Simulated scan of single mutants.
Amino acid sequence: MKLLVRNLSRTTSENALFELFADIGPVQSCNLVLDQATGESKGFAFVEMPKVGDAKIAINKLNNLDLDGSKIRVKKASTPAQDS
């Protein structure tokens, strides 16, 4: 399940985020979104966990967690509607 992690501190690293989620279960991918011009964090990331149960635990456990001075928001990433 792909998760959207928002309201990240600009100082939170991709490795720190990966480790936070890996404490709950296996992490397939962790992508901190960076500004192409500055290389700095845009304050959100996508984390993919292969087990739905682990992803749901991560949402419940980590949503509103204080991380590096910011209360992060964790929810299931919505996929854009596909045109038929």
Results as ranks from 00 to 15, higher is better:
residue 1 M to I: 02
residue 1 M to Y: 02
residue 2 K to R: 15
residue 2 K to S: 04
residue 2 K to F: 05
residue 3 L to M: 13
residue 3 L to D: 12
residue 3 L to R: 03
residue 4 L to V: 13
residue 5 V to I: 15
residue 5 V to R: 01
residue 6 R to P: 00
residue 6 R to C: 05
residue 7 N to H: 11
residue 8 L to D: 09
residue 8 L to M: 06
residue 10 R to K: 13
residue 10 R to T: 01
residue 12 T to K: 00
residue 12 T to P: 02
residue 13 S to L: 06
residue 14 E to H: 05
residue 14 E to M: 08
residue 14 E to R: 09
residue 14 E to A: 10
residue 15 N to W: 04
residue 15 N to A: 10
residue 15 N to G: 06
residue 15 N to T: 06
residue 17 L to W: 02
residue 17 L to A: 08
residue 18 F to K: 07
residue 19 E to R: 04
residue 20 L to N: 01
residue 20 L to E: 02
residue 22 A to W: 01
residue 23 D to P: 04
residue 24 I to S: 05
residue 27 V to L: 00
residue 28 Q to I: 07
residue 29 S to Y: 11
residue 29 S to H: 02
residue 29 S to P: 00
residue 30 C to N: 05
residue 31 N to I: 10
residue 31 N to P: 00
residue 31 N to E: 14
residue 31 N to L: 15
residue 31 N to H: 13
residue 32 L to E: 03
residue 32 L to H: 03
residue 34 L to P: 09
residue 35 D to Y: 11
residue 37 A to W: 11
residue 38 T to A: 05
residue 38 T to D: 06
residue 39 G to K: 11
residue 39 G to N: 12
residue 40 E to W: 05
residue 40 E to P: 00
residue 40 E to Y: 07
residue 44 F to V: 02
residue 44 F to Q: 03
residue 45 A to P: 08
residue 47 V to T: 08
residue 48 E to G: 01
residue 49 M to S: 03
residue 50 P to R: 05
residue 51 K to Y: 04
residue 52 V to I: 03
residue 52 V to G: 04
residue 52 V to Y: 08
residue 52 V to K: 06
residue 54 D to W: 09
residue 55 A to C: 08
residue 55 A to Q: 10
residue 56 K to S: 01
residue 56 K to W: 04
residue 56 K to V: 06
residue 57 I to C: 10
residue 57 I to D: 13
residue 58 A to W: 05
residue 58 A to F: 08
residue 60 N to E: 15
residue 60 N to R: 13
residue 61 K to E: 14
residue 62 L to S: 07
residue 63 N to P: 15
residue 63 N to D: 15
residue 64 N to L: 14
residue 64 N to V: 12
residue 66 D to H: 13
residue 67 L to S: 02
residue 68 D to T: 00
residue 69 G to L: 02
residue 70 S to K: 14
residue 71 K to S: 13
residue 71 K to Y: 15
residue 71 K to L: 13
residue 72 I to E: 12
residue 72 I to N: 06
residue 73 R to W: 10
residue 73 R to D: 11
residue 74 V to P: 11
residue 75 K to D: 14
residue 75 K to L: 12
residue 75 K to R: 13
residue 75 K to P: 02
residue 78 S to P: 00
residue 79 T to F: 06
residue 80 P to Q: 10
residue 82 Q to I: 07
residue 83 D to E: 05
residue 83 D to V: 04
residue 84 S to E: 09
